[in-house]
Amino acid sequence: MGNEIVEWIKALAIAGLLVFVIRWFLVSPFIVDGPSMQPNFWDRERIIVNKIIYDIRDPKRGEVIVFHVPEEKRDFIKRVIGVPGDTIKVEGDTVYINGEPIAEPYLQNAYDQAHANNEQYNKDKSNSMFPNNSFPDGTVPDDMLFVMGDNRSNSEDSRMIGYIPMDRVVGRADLVFWPLKQFHFIKH
């Protein structure tokens, strides 16, 4: 009986250690807060963030990342649009990188629906401080990223908060796990 208890304690200690290592060093859960990433991510969805990928390589355009925003005392989820050295220009529904319009397949259905109604998806909210048409062209500095929410007319992103330092990046969003009916790996 005594040996069995010792074995159970060892097994539980190892399991606890594995959970700690996985949770703090490899992956982290994240809850989407707000509509800024619709139609691809919804408010209150739960995702798994891969925390080690950017220890191996830098973020790439199109990847969805989670990063710290100390001024807001919380983390944001956004899509990487520009990497260091890229020149960014946002004009209506077209995002230009280094003078070339980029394809955004993750928003194509939303663009098509808005355009079918003779509207822009990336609506100008000129009555507010939202800078859809006023974001100046800029070159992404070293060790920084330019990020945007998929819900372009309702996203606090690099057009408002500026470039994101690489050292604030928590990791890449890799899996939606809740609600269960939305369970899927995230395409980047």
Rank of each mutant, 00 (worst) to 15 (best):
residue 11 A to T: 15
residue 79 R to W: 02
residue 148 M to C: 01
residue 68 H to I: 08
residue 44 R to D: 12
residue 30 F to D: 04
residue 56 I to Y: 03
residue 65 I to V: 15
residue 169 V to Y: 00
residue 157 D to N: 03
residue 176 V to L: 10
residue 20 F to V: 15
residue 47 I to N: 07
residue 180 L to Q: 06
residue 49 V to C: 04
residue 174 D to V: 11
residue 38 Q to N: 01
residue 125 K to Y: 04
residue 172 R to D: 02
residue 50 N to S: 11
residue 76 F to S: 09
residue 23 R to Y: 02
residue 122 N to A: 14
residue 130 F to R: 03
residue 67 F to S: 10
residue 10 K to Q: 09
residue 128 S to D: 02
residue 78 K to C: 10
residue 117 N to C: 05
residue 3 N to A: 13
residue 68 H to M: 12
residue 142 D to A: 04
residue 138 G to L: 05
residue 112 D to L: 03
residue 132 N to V: 15
residue 170 V to R: 13
residue 18 L to Q: 08
residue 76 F to Y: 15
residue 53 I to N: 07
residue 133 N to I: 04
residue 51 K to C: 09
residue 85 G to M: 06
residue 9 I to W: 13
residue 34 G to M: 13
residue 110 A to F: 04
residue 169 V to G: 06
residue 73 K to L: 11
residue 73 K to G: 00
residue 46 R to P: 15
residue 152 R to E: 01
residue 15 A to M: 12
residue 32 V to K: 06
residue 168 R to Y: 15
residue 133 N to V: 03
residue 104 E to D: 09
residue 89 K to E: 14
residue 108 Q to I: 09
residue 49 V to Y: 02
residue 49 V to R: 05
residue 170 V to I: 12
residue 131 P to G: 01
residue 14 I to D: 02
residue 1 M to R: 13
residue 88 I to S: 01
residue 75 D to G: 12
residue 145 L to F: 14
residue 90 V to H: 05
residue 171 G to R: 10
residue 183 F to Y: 13
residue 123 K to M: 07
residue 165 P to C: 06
residue 188 H to L: 01
residue 179 P to Q: 11
residue 107 L to V: 03
